[in-house]
Design a protein around this nucleic acid. Structure first.
Length: 305
RNA sequence: GCCGGGAUGGCAGAGGUGGUCAACGCACCCGUCUGAAAAACGGGCUAUGUCGGUUCGAUUCCGACUCCCGGCA
């Protein structure tokens, strides 16, 4: 019997502590699944737990630089072999992090798996207005744009992705998607089977936990404390250092809560109180969105804190 | 005390108006999202300081009061 443990959930719920505990009980090895901790040099503000886990005991920390793009596909590509290696050693991989999108793609696959992001195209289309993007899409496929809901129709990133998919298919390079889709989320066995195939591992047992706050007051209080702690630990200096290294607020790594606000402060746009308040608000809002997204996954066993 | 200016949602703030007034932003609530996810988006909520008058009808006109800001004393 092979075991895989996944711990996700809202930010600031203590996922890493739980992962550490489960690692001791299960002969486990941690694999990060936080889209921010993937980045080098983003340490204090993304809350890398160096005290709890020494750097070499957790996988997928610090794999790219702040100006590099990363996607759920890249994550899966890196995570799968790592998981496999750990299982082969007879240990338990423990995936821990709040980026549910990455977990979702790892567990359930993506229909358009063979159509990679075209960052050049994205950059090009990035200058266009939503109206222009809609027009491009309408020109290619009226059917497709009619299927989009209001939210997606106005979301430039989503529209660009759709265009990307259509362009790729127009080139004829695509293969018919495999039957991996959302319906698998309702079935625990299928989830394991999918991964067993991808890993070529037999008898995989998956434990899938989600951590969430009991109520919003506690969430806000905890986040506020955490922000204050990070400031005390040198968050401002971390940002200064990154700016000195030549990174800017437009770099994908720095498009992160905390960095955006502190850069605003260093630029003199925000006073410190506003900076802190905004930082806290953004994290609270993020935690809310996380749960909205994750709660649709029926495989998650929830634990309230 | 006198003179002037002001009072619009939880906050900030615009403009119009005797006829269901009421923008934008923030916050808050709910949601969307199959290769950017700590991202990007959609929807929703709440208002004319108090009291009285004129009027069929007042947020708008009139009066008083309260509070705030500026100037004079």
């Amino acid at each position: 019997m092979n075991k895989l443990i996944i711990i996700t959930g809202q930010t600031a719920t203590g996922k890493t502590s739980l992962a550490f505990k489960l690692a001791q009980e299960n002969n486990g090895v941690l694999i990060n699944c936080d889209s921010r901790q993937i980045y080098k040099y983003l340490d204090i503000i993304t809350g890398k737990d160096y005290n709890l886990i020494s750097k070499n005991k957790i996988g997928l920390y610090d794999v790219i630089k702040p100006d590099e793009y990363f996607s759920s596909f890249d994550y899966v590509k890196l995570a799968l072999p790592l998981i496999k290696k750990i299982i082969k050693k007879g240990k338990t991989p423990i995936i821990v992090g709040g980026t549910y999108l990455y977990i979702k793609h790892l567990l359930y696959g993506v229909e358009t798996e063979n159509i990679p992001p075209d960052w050049k195209l994205r950059k090009e289309l990035g200058n266009k207005t939503v109206k222009e993007l809609q027009k491009i899409l309408t020109g290619v496929s009226t059917q497709l744009i009619n299927q989009l809901n209001q939210s997606e129709k106005n979301n430039p990133q989503r529209l660009i992705r759709k265009i990307e998919i259509l362009k790729s298919r127009a080139k004829g390079s695509h293969i018919q998607p495999r039957g991996l889709n959302m319906t698998l989320q309702s079935s625990k066995t299928n989830m394991a089977i999918t991964l067993e195939n991808k890993l070529s591992v037999k008898n995989l047992k998956i434990e899938f936990y989600g951590l969430k706050f009991k109520d919003k007051n506690l969430l806000r209080k905890t986040i506020k404390k955490r922000v204050e702690k990070r400031l005390k630990n040198g968050a401002v200096d971390e940002v200064k250092k990154l700016l000195e290294m030549g990174y800017t607020k437009k770099d994908p790594g720095l498009k992160t809560t905390g960095y955006q606000q502190l850069i605003g402060h260093l630029e003199g746009v925000l006073d410190i109180d506003t900076t802190i308040q905004q930082w806290i608000n953004k994290e609270v809002q993020y935690a809310k969105r996380q749960y909205t997204f994750m709660k649709k996954d029926k495989n998650i066993t929830w634990r309230e804190i």
